[in-house]
Amino acid sequence: MPMRTRARRSGSKGGRPSKMDPDKVQRVEEMKACGISDEAIAERLTLSRTTLLKHYGRALRVGRHRRRAELNEIVWREARAGKSWAVKMLKADMEAAEAEEDFLGGAKAEQPAAPKPPKLGKKEIAQQEAVTAAEGTDWGTDLEVPGATMQ
């Protein structure tokens, strides 16, 4: 017997309508881009922090990057139009990014990752500790076993 389905309104995705207001999404992104905390954003929008995270989580995660890209587009457009302040700003941003890349790249190139030592079991650790048990004590050679060889 075929299943009956409900008729949907055209353009409807079904389910509950979204509680996200596009204007609020933009405001959340802008506030996050300015470094405002999630708690302060929630308070400003008269939402609980939980509701803010639930409905505007994506805006909180990508808002800063999206607004930074938007700002860069504006600065580039102004620089192409010959505005000296925009050219200076872009030059400073590029120099800072290059310095950061050199710093991070140089640190990685100078210090290759050291191989991790093999993980030892309880017996291997106990054996190593037994070999060095007399170090730093006044026991001296009292712990040595005649004729035994330590590894």
Rank of each mutant, 00 (worst) to 15 (best):
R44Y: 07
H55Y: 12
E73Q: 10
D138N: 15
G82P: 11
S37W: 04
K116N: 05
I125G: 02
M89N: 04
A81G: 15
E30T: 10
D21L: 08
K19M: 06
K91W: 03
K108A: 08
G147V: 03
P17R: 06
R80L: 09
M3Y: 08
H55P: 03
A107H: 03
R4M: 14
P22W: 01
T50F: 07
E43G: 09
G140W: 07
I36C: 01
L47T: 00
L104M: 14
S48L: 02
M1P: 06
A81N: 13
A92P: 01
A92Y: 04
A42I: 09
P146M: 01
G121Y: 04
Q127A: 11
Q127E: 14
A97T: 09
T149D: 07
S37R: 11
K88A: 08
R58A: 13
P146I: 01
A40D: 15
T51N: 13
L120E: 10
G57F: 00
T50E: 14
L60R: 01
L52I: 10
R61H: 05
M89T: 14
P118E: 13
S12C: 08
K119W: 00
K116Y: 04
E110D: 11
D21V: 08
R77T: 14
D38P: 00
R27M: 06
G136Q: 05
A97W: 08
M150N: 11
K13E: 06
G57D: 05
E144D: 10
D38K: 12
A130L: 13
A114F: 02
R61V: 14
M20H: 05
L90N: 12
A126H: 06
R64P: 01
Y56S: 10
G147H: 07
E101T: 12
T132D: 13
A96K: 11
E101Y: 15
S37M: 03
E39P: 01
L71V: 08
T51W: 07
H65C: 00
P118M: 04
D21Y: 02
G105A: 12
H55C: 02
N72R: 14
A109K: 07
V75W: 02
G106Q: 03
L45N: 11
A113T: 04
A133W: 10
A126R: 09
K88L: 10
M89E: 09
F103H: 07
A114D: 01
P2D: 08
K24Q: 15
E78Q: 15
D102T: 00
A114L: 14
E144W: 04
V28G: 04
A148S: 12
L45S: 11
L143R: 13
R16N: 10
V28Q: 07
I74R: 15
A97G: 05
E110P: 02
R49N: 06
I36K: 03
K32A: 11
A81T: 05
